[in-house]
Design a protein around this nucleic acid. Structure first.
Lengths: 305, 305
DNA sequence: GCAAACTCACGCGTTTTCGCATGTGTCGGG
DNA sequence: CCCGACACATGCGAAAACGCGTGAGTTTGC
């Protein structure tokens, strides 16, 4: 095998500073987290180890990378330079992990999926459980959060999102169209049906602009009783009979104690997407989970419209 | 110091494979050098260590990265993928070293300079020696090679090159214009001067196209006796009286036993440049060496034309 | 105003990693 | 044919790295 695969014709003689790549990672994490303890726990090592690695790094570079403060380490200019390049290296490392995950066609190992809290609670719990049962060798982690996790950084392998497009760098698939409608307790719904002129009291998310305009035509007498910034809290308010809420169909239907209020017909809402990074899209586990989702949403399409 | 410098808002929870960055480096070097022993010596560790790190890496990835052959390790497709990303990480690491070297204004530590073999032997030895004496804390390494070392990879900090421009990505400074002329032993030179019609025998570098055209006007009777691919060998041939050679002025003048042959007046030749990567150009040691060079070439300009 | 929680520094015992030495198999030249 | 050069595997002792515990100082909160 005399044929040497040479990615670089000449090999460098790097004089002086021969630094350890892992020490760079310690600097990066210390910059990110500010204290030795936090960086250490993020790295999965004791904080003293972080301190040692940073010391080694400073010795290798020849200049201090951090100022020692009473409540943490503050990065210096030189330290920021090091951290910047360490971050670039980390990007490459993450990219590698993605590509390996994408090539891995086995149905075992870890798989992390993120989805909106309430979508999981109301619909996805069942298909997720079925997937976990069907593939016991897959180490399935669900991150129920409304935050948009960074799929580029592989904070999750696959995301279920309520949005109009998969995003710039991601590959996606539209799982379902959605419609939204108005919901309230049966008591409240009956009262509104009985007297269209009565005042309709709304409970709304702070991001909404106000009562839906089409509803004002039939029920002009409307006011917003309460603004909330959390959907779970809104559901609770609606169940307590505080007012009428506007919800995607799946959520209103699956919430006990709420019925649809015929103020206005269901309106189009944001569709549900399944998105992933291109590199992992064709990976075995991601593919399998995605196909399970597609099957589920095909069978239960009417839940959402 | 509650203000946390956050290069990334959320920190990734990288499930499964927690790989060591240094193990990636081992894979990269093993791909480059083909055998454990070669990779180990390039890394400055024992080859057993390389083997162990690669094993760890394969275990982490889950697929073999190399085929074990009787005469070395052959990289697999997955291994190539890993090595590619490791190489990208290495690029970042090298870039970091460059930037730190560029910020370092101290006149101590290592400095590597490359220059053509014969230019060092004929001219640069003196100013280089003076620099070394003037800056005893600088660990000066001279790489006398005709290869173009990769300044991007920091195979050298600074290069003295005979070329027409500094190159794409590099910063440069023209140290001297050069002229070339014809040289031979005094005996041979006299004979040519005595009989312009006699046959002029040339010794040439294989890269030359043949006897210089202007010389054919006055001495049409010319043949190339010998082609050589090495300048030191050409000098030897000329000193042995094998023929007339074409040399840059500095080289012909400084070679004992050779005199200029008045076949044709000196012609323009490729100038001498001092080039370095932009990141290190303003660094203390590079700057000092460069200034010494400029001073030397200003004082000895007439050696080259 | 004082205790709890937080930060880091330092020292020690343990674990891990490393380098060396030895053994095996293969290839090529004398 | 055998021997040396070169490839790797394996096992063991030394060295380096690591984690834990302790102690000092500072901020936070009751």
């Amino acid at each position: 095998m005399r044929k040497r695969v040479s990615l670089h014709p000449a090999h460098a003689i790097l004089h002086g500073m021969e630094s350890n790549w892992d020490d760079l990672k310690a600097v990066l994490f210390l910059v990110r987290h500010g204290t030795l303890a936090a960086a250490g726990s993020a790295l999965g090592v004791a904080y003293t180890t972080v301190a040692r690695r940073v010391e080694r790094m400073e010795k290798a570079v020849g200049t201090p990378l951090f100022e020692r403060l009473t409540d943490g380490y503050r990065v210096t200019e030189a330290g920021r330079e090091v951290a910047y390049h360490a971050e670039q290296m980390e990007q490459q490392h993450i990219a590698l992990e993605r590509r390996l995950a994408g090539q891995d066609q086995h149905l075992r190992g870890s798989l992390t999926v993120t989805a909106p809290q309430l979508l999981i609670a109301a619909c996805l719990a069942k298909p997720i459980g079925a997937f976990a049962d069907a593939h016991p060798d897959v180490d399935l982690t669900i991150r129920a959060t409304n935050d948009l996790l960074d799929l580029n950084r592989r904070e999750a392998d696959l995301a279920i999102r309520v949005s109009n497009d998969p995003g710039d760098t991601l590959t996606g698939l539209r799982l379902a169209e959605q419609a939204q409608a108005s919901f309230a307790t049966p008591d409240l719904a009956n009262r509104i049906a009985a007297d269209p002129a009565a005042c309709v009291e709304w409970v709304m998310h702070v991001s909404a602009k106000g009562p839906p305009k089409p509803s004002l035509a039939s029920h002009p007498n409307a006011r917003v009783k309460l603004w909330l910034d959390d959907m779970v809290a809104i559901l609770g308010a609606a169940q307590a009979g505080l007012g009428v809420v506007r919800l995607p169909m799946f959520l209103g239907r699956s919430t006990p104690g709420l019925v649809q209020v015929p103020i206005l017909p269901p309106q189009p809402y944001i569709p549900i997407w399944c998105v992933a990074h291109r590199d992992v899209w064709k990976g075995g586990k991601v593919r399998a989970f995605r196909e399970a989702l597609v099957a589920y949403f095909r069978e239960n399409r009417d839940q959402f419209t």
